[in-house]
Design a protein around this nucleic acid. Structure first.
Length: 375
DNA sequence: AAGACGGGGAT
DNA sequence: ATCCCAGTCTT
């Protein structure tokens, strides 16, 4: 029951377990701080298996900090397409430019400097310092909070920001001299592969003998975490408009906020709450009126095409998609409002779209191909 | 302290 | 349907 003894045991057994074998991941093949940095940004709220192909492509396209700093932002967003949390990509590039200008192109190795970079919070700072430079800094993520909460029987709500600090202090005390990087990775590896959120694999756990949660049969109760609020539903209508050349009318999203600077189909919010009854006609009227009022785009909505639903962390879009055409005076070439443009199928490979719209566009392309084949 | 910010895989 | 992921930034 000795606390210090438990800590020493934990550090010893976990480190030995990790050194006996761990996953072969692309960013573990070197100690290149740039590789570690990019991987840690991508891994924020994102699974290892999801990140691997993105990481490999990213390193091919942007092999060095300089290459990333000098690339067009559009290319960086495209490389991030589908990964989500797009501010990570914009912050990463801004930070690469900062590293190039202020740190001679080398990822800094002090807590102050590394933490000052955009997109680098307490977890990522600790991860880079420990993994790339073997500095004895804690790297506390969701895995670490779960794993330590269980072993040390911590009842604190891990959804509360204050809990992080407490667990960080514990994690710092556990770091073995000279092996900070391996130990921190071991902690996360255990959480990802053994001490999983549900149905943990206690029988193969290297620290099961002294795990508080297992000994008390409380692995299902720990860690304590308050539930998140469900996403708020939002109905929207989108316009699928093509020109004679088959190009699609798209617009770029604003500089900030949700899906910033990505491309999308023109669409408008519909009345929320669902008090008035939804109808095709109401959708089309909203599409026509709101695109005209907000963007100065005059469209004539047509037949219903498809529905698409997409859930974000905090909201859910129920998108209804209508074919449409531009309303313009006969013989007068319409001028598109700012942020709008026609985009050919071949060009879409160069611009980043949120998955929701990729699915809609892809689905329509397949439907068109089907019509073509039958005709 | 709470909300914004993507998308997908596991149960 | 629910959880939650190698979190950070803004308010």
């Amino acid at each position: 029951m000795n606390d210090n003894e438990n800590k020493a045991y934990y550090t010893r057994e976990l480190t030995a377990w990790y050194q006996r074998g761990n996953r072969d991941l692309p960013w573990r093949r070197s100690r290149n701080p740039y590789h570690i940095w990019v991987s840690e940004i991508m891994l924020q709220q994102t699974r290892v298996e999801t990140v691997i192909p993105y990481f490999n492509r990213f390193m091919e396209k942007f092999p060095t900090i300089d290459a990333l700093a000098d690339a067009p932002e559009e290319d960086v967003l495209k490389a991030w397409e589908g990964l989500g949390y797009y501010s990570r990509a914009r912050n990463l590039q801004a930070a690469a430019q900062e590293v190039k200008e202020s740190y001679e192109g080398k990822v800094p190795d002090t807590p102050e400097a590394i933490s000052s970079l955009k997109g680098v919070g307490p977890y990522t700072a600790g991860a880079i310092l420990s993994i790339a430079y073997n500095k004895p800094e804690p790297a506390v993520d969701g895995n670490v909070m779960r794993v330590l909460s269980r072993f040390f029987l911590l009842e604190d709500d891990i959804a509360k920001p204050s809990t992080r600090g407490k667990i960080e202090k514990l994690a710092r005390a556990l770091i073995p001299a000279g092996s900070a990087g391996d130990f921190n990775q071991a902690l996360m590896e255990l959480g990802a592969t053994v001490c999983t959120p549900r149905s943990p694999h206690c029988l193969v756990c290297p620290v099961m003998e002294r795990c508080g949660a297992r000994l008390e049969g409380r692995t299902d109760e720990l860690p304590v975490k308050t539930k998140a609020k469900p996403p708020r539903p939002e109905s929207r209508a989108a316009a699928f408009i093509t020109d004679a050349a088959g190009r699609l009318l798209v617009r770029q999203r604003p500089q900030d906020g949700l899906l910033a600077r990505l491309w999308e189909l023109p669409h408008v919010p519909l009345s929320e709450g669902g008090r008035e009854e939804a109808s095709r006609e109401a959708d089309k009227r909203a599409l026509r009126e709101r695109l005209a009022a907000e963007d100065g785009l005059r469209v004539v909505p047509g037949e219903w095409l498809t529905d698409a639903e997409h859930t974000f962390s905090h909201l859910r879009w129920d998108m209804r998609v209508y074919r449409g055409r531009l309303a313009h005076e006969p013989g007068e070439p319409e001028a598109l409002p700012p942020a709008y443009r026609w985009m050919g199928r071949d060009e879409m490979g160069s611009y980043a779209f949120p998955n929701l719209f990729l699915r809609i566009i892809q689905g329509e392309a397949e439907a068109a191909a089907g019509r073509e084949a039958r005709a």
